[in-house]
């Protein structure tokens, strides 16, 4: 897999309803969704949440493939969680499987299944946000939503600026890494074989040039920003103003409704 194929935080441009929602709405919806996800206790609740996600993916038209690809890096964590839950959840009654020190109860299977579902839904919905929202809109929205913290003298603007710069440079640095890696491979460097120590040593020809170029870029960016009289968020205006539309209020209401529905489904106690 080439480094270029990493989908972390990648934006798929589009004009669907999900793309057009105000980014603040989308962040709030994500919060609602995650809250609902942690409230869910039974199949009905999880079913509702899974259906919501499927619906959202269909509306966004990014495709299930892209969402699933985002799952790749956390595959190990998902498996690890599943195994731990499977083995260490105590249950009442007879274990379903008892073998040597391994005892698997019905409750273990249930917890493991729901845990895996929870992690997968959590990651998918986060990815859906970054797939449908450009990084710039995302940080603008965060700055706006965190505006209240400004009163507590938290440097919200600076934090948002740092975040947008960091996001902006992820693809650049990935490209740079790819390039330096190719250049060193062309000189016979081997990043894939050997033991751990050997591989760590093999990273030096990659990391040294990468750090040097990152510092150089940071320096150049700072100069470019100062040349354009950047001096923090004070009195700074925006070309693109964020504005809530009717669809945002409807979406937020639906988000709240989802939370309530999941809470109600807990009371029903199905499965």
């Amino acid at each position: 897999m080439a480094l270029k194929d990493i989908t972390l935080g990648q934006y798929f441009p589009g004009k669907t309803l999900l793309h057009r929602l105000d980014p603040r709405t989308k962040i709030l919806l994500l919060v609602f969704y995650i809250v609902a996800l942690f409230m869910a206790k039974n199949a009905l609740g999880y079913g509702l949440l899974a259906l919501t996600l499927v619906g959202a993916v269909l509306v966004s038209r990014v495709g299930f493939k892209a969402v699933l690809r985002g799952m790749k890096p956390v595959f190990f964590i998902v498996v690890f969680t599943a195994v731990l839950n499977l083995l260490y959840t105590p249950g009442q009654g007879e274990p379903l499987i008892a073998f040597w020190v391994i005892k698997i109860y019905w409750e273990g299977i249930r917890t493991a299944f729901f845990m895996v579902l929870r992690i997968m839904l959590l990651i998918s919905c986060t990815f859906l946000l970054t797939y449908t929202t450009s990084p710039i809109l995302l940080t603008d929205a965060l700055e706006d939503l965190l505006g209240l913290l400004k009163k507590l003298r938290l440097p919200v603007h600076e934090l948002a600026m740092m975040m947008s710069i960091a996001l902006r440079f992820i693809p650049t640095l990935i490209e740079e890494t790819d390039k330096i890696m190719s250049a060193q491979k062309a000189r016979g460097a081997d990043f894939e074989t050997g033991n751990l120590l050997h591989r760590a040593q093999a990273l030096i020809p990659l990391l040294v040039p990468l750090f040097i170029s990152a510092f150089r870029r940071a320096d150049e960016l700072a100069v470019a920003m100062e040349c354009r009289c950047y001096h923090g968020g004070e009195g700074r205006t925006r070309m693109r103003q964020l504005k809530y539309a009717g669809r945002d209020y409807i979406a937020l209401l639906l988000g709240l409704a989802l939370c309530v529905a999941v809470w109600c489904s807990n009371l029903l106690g199905v499965f």
Binding site: K179, I180, S182, A183, Q184, K185, A186, R187, G188, I204, P205, V208, P209, I212, S213
Partner: peptide, 17 residues
Amino acid sequence: ARFRVGLVFQYPEYQLF
């Protein structure tokens, strides 16, 4: 092949370490 065919990238000075 990597040793038989030497490749110098664009701006190769950024690969020095």
